[in-house]
Simulated scan of single mutants.
Amino acid sequence: MPVTDDAGLRELLSADTVAVVGCSTTPGKPAHDVPRYLREHGYEVVPVNPYADEVFGVPAADGLADVDREVALVNVFRPSEEVPGIVDDVLARRERVGDAWGLWLQLGIEAGDALARAETAGLRATQDRCLKVEHGRLID
């Protein structure tokens, strides 16, 4: 069951390092502005975008397997149909590295079966919510 209650969302928001899958280099896009907001509020943001060399002056990883630092939360800005593959990547990372305990699918992104699979594997997860909006509502 996806996290929907405020206590569960606060737990996800307690992450300090967030890998942003689909992080954009284009200001004005939510996939750029939300990670920028996170950085401004003390989060370490790890951009994951195979088409970018860097975002916010931080080297961008091609995929989750290429992230060279510990990650607590994976924030997804990719279409819903890509989520099952992203969950595969998160679970492979958990098995290999032992991190990534949370998964956040941004507003408009839903993948019930993939999310259920992630939760069965021990991840705390939510979908169809804006991380920036929930942070502003619950933390800021």
Rank of each mutant, 00 (worst) to 15 (best):
A121N: 01
G108D: 04
T17E: 11
V71F: 12
V34T: 08
D140S: 15
P84R: 09
R137P: 09
E119A: 06
D6C: 10
A111I: 01
V46P: 12
V20T: 10
G98V: 02
E119Y: 09
K132Q: 15
R94D: 11
L73N: 04
L131C: 10
R117A: 03
T25N: 12
R137F: 04
G22L: 10
A65N: 00
V90M: 05
A31P: 08
A15Y: 09
H32A: 01
G42K: 11
D113V: 09
A100R: 00
G102N: 05
V67W: 00
V18A: 14
V76Q: 05
R93A: 02
Q127G: 02
E54N: 12
A15H: 09
G98R: 10
A7V: 12
T126A: 01
R10G: 12
D5K: 11
V21R: 03
T26A: 12
V58M: 01
R93Q: 05
Q106C: 05
G42A: 11
G108Y: 05
R129K: 15
Q106P: 08
G112S: 13
W101F: 09
P47N: 08
G136V: 01
D89C: 00
A15S: 15
W104Q: 00
D66R: 02
A60F: 05
L9P: 06
A19M: 10
A114E: 07
T25E: 13
V20S: 09
L138Q: 02
C23W: 13
A72D: 15
D53F: 07
R137H: 06
T126L: 06
I109F: 01
D99T: 06
L138K: 03
D66Q: 11
A61P: 03
L123A: 01
L64N: 02
K132T: 07
A121Q: 00
I109C: 09
V90C: 03
D16G: 15
L13Y: 02
T126N: 03
F56E: 01
D68L: 07
V133C: 03
R78G: 02
D88S: 00
D16Y: 11
P27G: 10
V90P: 01
R137V: 10
G28D: 05
A118K: 04
S14I: 08
A116P: 05
L12A: 02
L107I: 05
R94L: 10
G102Y: 14
K29C: 07
L115M: 15
A19I: 07
E11N: 11
D99I: 14
L38F: 13
G85D: 14
Y43W: 14
D88E: 03
D16W: 13
G102K: 04
T120K: 15
L91A: 02
A7K: 13
A19V: 04
H135C: 08
A60N: 08
T126Y: 12
G63V: 04
V87E: 06
L91I: 08
R78H: 02
W101N: 03
L115A: 07
E11H: 15
I139D: 08
D140T: 15
A125M: 06
E95V: 02
G28W: 08
P35N: 09
L107Q: 14
I139M: 14
D66M: 03
G22P: 12
E54W: 05
